[in-house]
Design a protein around this nucleic acid. Structure first.
Lengths: 242, 242
DNA sequence: GCCGATTTGTCCGTATGTATC
DNA sequence: CGATACATACGGACAAATCGG
């Protein structure tokens, strides 16, 4: 169940837009109509619309109305601006997925790892290497570093299904936000081996480096995600600021 | 001058955070303090903070406060979630820049171009190829397609300085939002020639494809931006949604 | 061009709920 | 438990942009 009125309105409008209830470039019902339909105050409706704007679903035009500018996300696209696990993304796009844990170990962050990840030196860390398959094809190698004190009890078995499920539902951690950096890097032998790539073909990888925070403001995860270049696709929505 | 109270508060807080007035992980003044400091209502302060949250500058914690989680953007990073021209980005990061127009022509969109760009078939288009230099180094090749009816009077000379300046200040167009897709593609001969790349070294490019809309909800620009992989760096902030 | 109706944008004050300390 | 801090929601007022008559 939704936690708040504005969120349920946001989700309902989002669903209606995604299900083509409004044509591309068509105007949505005016705020006054929505107020009557949802039986709530103007601020509440406006808050829901505000989220649709930042999501890139609609565009507001003073004096005119709210225009639907939603375009369906193309297949195998990862949506930016939202934290989503590989599993969630695969499900959303209607694919089959599989995860193989290549390595699971515990280590203590030394100076060089601390520098690289942003964890304090001396911190206890779970280090994982995982290979992700989409529709049977190996597409991504993830190097995950989790702060042990925030993710106690993580096992290889959990890592094979969904770590985020475990963190959110078993440990009741709330994952809040994440800073991500996208770069292109040279392919390594590990990449070549597990992703069945040919250097003649592609000698680079798309790399997404992310720093993820929980609701206590603690950075509990550092991940380097190495994507097969020919299947890599990220989509985002940007706004022009004054 | 700022158009509104909440925006000036947003900018002031942003400036104070960027200038290290608050330590990393430190709490900002509480809403009640900010209300007194800025002499405004609670909603106005909350709105400013809300924008800082979506920008990834702060994290709010119910019952606790608002925590500064801002990390300075690393050099040569393009900030995602914000539309910024090459020139603006270079200035922001304190670099010198230069733009060379390789090609400037007018054309009519045929079926295949319409399919690729999303412009209606038959539309009159300005097509440009531009090479962007940062600190004297050629880093990006842009293929720009502008809808002529929205960008009348565009010339090669304008394209050598700033197209966005012309659109916003001379044509008084308001640029609103943009959908961007990031992929990795094989290098072409043009890339190799102008970016002084060696295929032995890198045989891929980071490609950003963007569809940009103005305040009338018209898509007036389609651009394919091909980046030198070793200098490509995009940064974004993501939030976890229920 | 003007005017009134409609629609979105900004701002305020207040009340209540929930989490933290 | 009370004080503090953020979260949600309501209602009202006025401004600014658009559109039709």
């Amino acid at each position: 169940m939704p936690k708040s009125i504005y969120e349920s309105i946001y989700k309902d409008l989002k669903r209606r837009i995604e299900s083509d209830e409004f044509a591309y470039r068509e105007l949505l019902p005016s705020e006054n109509v929505l107020i009557r339909n949802y039986n709530c105050s103007r601020n509440t409706v406006r808050r829901a619309i505000g989220r649709l704007v930042t999501d890139g679903y609609v565009q507001t035009m003073q004096g005119k109305g709210v225009r639907n500018i939603y375009r369906p996300v193309e297949q195998t696209a990862f949506t930016i601006g939202e934290i989503e696990s590989f599993r969630e993304s695969a499900i959303r796009n209607g694919h089959t997925y599989d995860t193989k844990v290549l390595l699971f170990m515990e280590l203590t962050a030394d100076e060089s790892l601390a520098e690289k990840t942003g964890f304090p030196a001396g911190a206890e860390i779970y280090y994982l290497q995982r290979l992700h398959f989409l529709d049977g094809k190996p597409l991504i190698i993830n190097h995950n570093y989790f702060l042990k004190e925030c993710t106690l009890g993580l096992t290889k078995e959990i890592a094979e299904t969904s770590i985020y499920d475990y963190l959110e539902h078993t440990l009741h951690m709330t994952i809040v936000n994440s800073r991500r950096i996208m770069t292109v890097e040279k392919i390594t032998e590990i990449d070549e081996k597990y992703l069945e790539l040919n250097v003649e073909d592609y000698n680079c990888m798309a790399v997404v480096t992310s720093y993820t925070y929980n609701s206590d403001g603690i950075m509990f995860e550092f991940t380097q995600s190495r994507h097969r270049p020919d299947y890599f696709r990220f989509q985002e929505h940007a706004v022009r600021k004054g």
